[in-house]
Write a protein that binds this DNA or RNA. Structure first.
Lengths: 226, 226
DNA sequence: GCAAAAGCATGATAATTATCATAGTTTGCG
DNA sequence: CGCAAACTATGATAATTATCATGCTTTTGC
């Protein structure tokens, strides 16, 4: 079993506040998993009972709406934690987490994390700040969904994908999503998403090469996103 | 200066975990305000530096979108806290809080609240759970905005208003909002909101008497909300 | 009490977006 | 490899929603 001390998740997440001793304890009780592309880490309604550390790969957090369509709420990648909300609220997961690429994750049981909230105030505050950050993001997301057109949201989302996950060596967006997933991320029908991508392509804002998307005119995209 | 011990806010908020001594300290450093209908408690971008306890009245939390329209994210009423996220993240407020009725609020400075996170784990966990609840709500809100029609959102919102804030003695919705505010809550143009309300009125789902709204067919509304 | 402002209502029209249909393209797998 | 399944693309059309215009009603402030 590998140590948690040099794990990338520790570097980027709330866990950075843990000391050597606490990390050793956690390393002892954690379990590692490999999740294949397309497989769920956990699903909406499931009891999670712990947190997942994303060591490698990207997953989508999504929720099935009443009309049967999947709405992607957020993408989570290497270095981040999953399942904190559910664990703290002591409720079943509100969202499903599904791997978009092959992933490496660790699971730490609730019983081993919860005592830390009491023992280590810096850790506790880190988690709180992380959740507050998610909340701010979610509120902003609501405003965008309510007030922006699909076109604006697409432009914004493309920029956000590049900002957050970067590009491959050739300059195309790193995280490869299907058109359906992009549609689900911005909250629109797949066809509408495809049409707008074509539009952006024709007007030189982006370039489409098969599944690859290159952002060619960042300023223009920012203008579209308003 | 009044005591915090029997305050309604204590009863319903994270503050219920505080003990006598802690409450006395807070009572000492808090300040009380009366906020008139239409006035802000704080505004987007402002440094709040503490939390507000809502002793009476209802306010809206809203955010100005790029197109200049106000999007209402949430209504907050008697017994709840305001400004926690901003205080914890140590960031300016992400949302504005504006009174929908005359309000009574108390302000507790950050410097007096923060030490409690360290001292009182139950309080700390309460706050965390409250924010987790907000996060869940916000995620669900995103899904609704993305996947439901304006008609569905209106039906849902009317039901939610009655569930959350109840009715007046005559059975009409307690919280009186303008059509513009309802529109801003569901994320649509005022005219569209008015038209749909008229529709609901004509089909007997609701009854409009001036500004008063009576929900007449809960089942039907639930069906509309899907 | 009255004038101005704010709020409510409705029509006409345009813009946006979804849906259905069809077909070409890519991917994964036995 | 070759085929089925998944994905991408585009047209035609319908549904939803926004915008602009106008008039009426209620509220507010002096």
């Amino acid at each position: 079993m590998s140590k948690c001390e040099q794990c990338i998740v520790r570097e980027f997440s709330s866990l950075k506040a843990l000391n050597k001793e606490e990390l050793l304890k956690i390393a002892d009780c954690k379990s590692s998993y490999t999740i294949k592309k397309g497989e769920p880490i956990f699903e909406e309604g499931e009891n999670v009972n712990g947190i997942f550390c994303v060591k490698d790969g990207v997953c989508k957090l999504s929720k099935l709406s009443a009309n049967g369509k999947d709405q992607i709420i957020k993408l989570v990648s290497k270095g981040e934690l999953l399942g904190q909300r559910s664990m703290i609220s002591d409720e079943p997961a509100n969202l499903s987490a599904v791997a978009l690429e092959d992933m490496e994750v660790c699971f730490i049981p609730k019983s081993d994390i919860m005592p830390l909230f009491n023992q280590n105030n810096a850790f506790s505050m880190n988690v709180m700040r992380a959740i507050c950050g998610d909340l701010k993001e979610a509120d902003d997301h609501v405003v965008d969904m309510a007030q922006k057109t699909v076109r604006q949201r697409l432009a914004e989302t493309l920029l956000h994908l590049q900002d957050t996950f970067g590009t491959q060596e050739d300059g195309s967006l790193k995280t490869q999503l299907t058109r359906e997933e992009i549609g689900s991320l911005i909250g629109t029908a797949t066809e509408s998403c495809i049409r707008l991508l074509s539009d952006f392509n024709k007007s030189g804002l982006i370039e489409l090469k098969g599944k690859k998307i290159f952002l060619r005119d960042i300023k223009g995209l920012k203008r579209e996103a308003e």
